[in-house]
Design a protein around this nucleic acid. Structure first.
Lengths: 156, 156
DNA sequence: TAACTTTGACCTTGACTGACTTTCACCTTT
DNA sequence: AAAGGTGAAAGTCAGTCAAGGTCAAAGTTA
């Protein structure tokens, strides 16, 4: 395995883990050179692995002295409320974003490993064999139902 | 005898036997080339000889750096009963029968109360808003996926 | 003939690239 | 100072390449 994008992801997460405030700043061009890739690949990594669903915030600035700042959202700003979580899901959701949300719930111990595995299995496009956009809508329905059933504690 | 599929099967099982964790990763294209067959024949072999019923779990990833991962499941009592439940689910299933199966899994302690609640939520016809028979087929796919997700516990 | 095997055309996903664009700090020029 | 130029960043996005997936038809075998 281990393509460049995965390596960059791991590297950035190590930097984040080592940083005091869960915040790092990088130079896009420098990082690209470090990994012998084109600068826009950094954007690809950020777009696919450091989204809000994953629990990160990315800011940047262009021009001379530009930078890319990656922040890991602190615990108490994270998925604390059910409505926040459902908001993130919305009326339709891609597999990617759903995976990220489930992974985040697991990291925050809102669900167990087994539960996350089950949820990941269910929202897979191989299971939800429908065309778009119906598939993304169904996935949202299902994910919402699962989240409500686990966290809503309705009637208990 | 010894058609190509049998050869590929034997080869993969040798690899699995030699591997420490009962888990191997292959490149579909490489393997196909090795056996002078078309890549899709690998899928045929996996689909006919490395199913859950046979005690295997197959995962894969597309795109650059893609792979096919084959895991051998340790055969035990729990696995056998889950496998039986899979047969019970079949290719389509009503909500009522699905509810009964989930309830039975809960009684047999194959799943926790939380897990059963989540499963019940997902197979509800209010969530799977499709007409019949598509809904019953989708429910079967989902239920199967959830049960299978429980199989890969120990290995990973 | 029924079941199994093999094949290939077409599809979907994921990683990566590069040409082109936008933004910004810092100069000049007037 | 205000306006405008310059180079140094980062951003965008459509396209290409690299995998694996699907399905039905054709071929083979028991």
């Amino acid at each position: 395995m281990s393509n460049i994008s995965d390596l960059i992801e791991r590297y950035l997460k190590e930097l984040l883990a080592a940083s005091a405030r869960g915040m790092i700043e990088i130079r896009r061009n420098e990082l690209a050179e470090q990994f012998n890739c084109v600068p826009s690949q950094i954007n690809y990594v950020l777009a696919t692995r450091f989204t809000v669903e994953h629990g990160f915030l990315v800011e940047s600035r262009r021009g001379g002295g530009g930078y890319v700042r990656i922040m890991q959202l602190p615990r108490d700003q994270r998925l604390d409320s059910l409505s926040q979580l459902l908001n993130l899901v919305g009326r339709e959701i891609s597999q990617r974003r759903a995976q990220a949300i489930i992974e985040r719930m697991r990291e925050e111990k809102l669900i167990t490993d087994r539960e996350s595995r089950m949820m990941q299995a269910v929202i897979d496009r191989e299971v939800l064999r429908l065309g778009l956009p119906a598939r993304d809508q169904l996935r949202a329905m299902i994910l919402r139902a699962m989240i409500i059933s686990l966290l809503g504690q309705k009637g208990e």
